[in-house]
Amino acid sequence: MLFFLSFVVFLIGLYCVATRKNLLKIVMGIVIMEYAVNFFLILLGYRMGGVAPIVTEGVKEAKFVDPLPQAMVLTSIVISIATLAFIVAICIRIYQRYHTFDVTEIRRLKG
């Protein structure tokens, strides 16, 4: 069920990217998509009633959550932060050149 929810969030992000006209809203759409995928990855590793996977003596039989997706999510968050910082910087530069955030008015390239 929650997997389905993450897919719905993903589609909301995609819809946002496809339909919004404001540059920053498009950026937000991308961020929503990234979060949906991170959410999905975390869900993959989740075990009902699991504990943190720290192997010491005496906890051998305990039920662990899968640590690998968590490591993946950390990496993917770092990457998406880098992308986000850069894309927002580009948005600011675009605003300085075109004096608008409206994508329909930012159209010098065509053909």
């Binding site: 990217v17 540059l23 991308i30 990234e34 894309i87 675009i94 050149r97």
Partner: peptide, 17 residues
């Protein structure tokens, strides 16, 4: 320049997706 930024934005959005 204006055109380069526009192209980069377009590229970034599609490539991020």
């Amino acid at each position: 320049e204006a055109e380069e930024l526009e192209a980069a934005f377009k590229y970034m959005v599609m490539s991020s997706i």
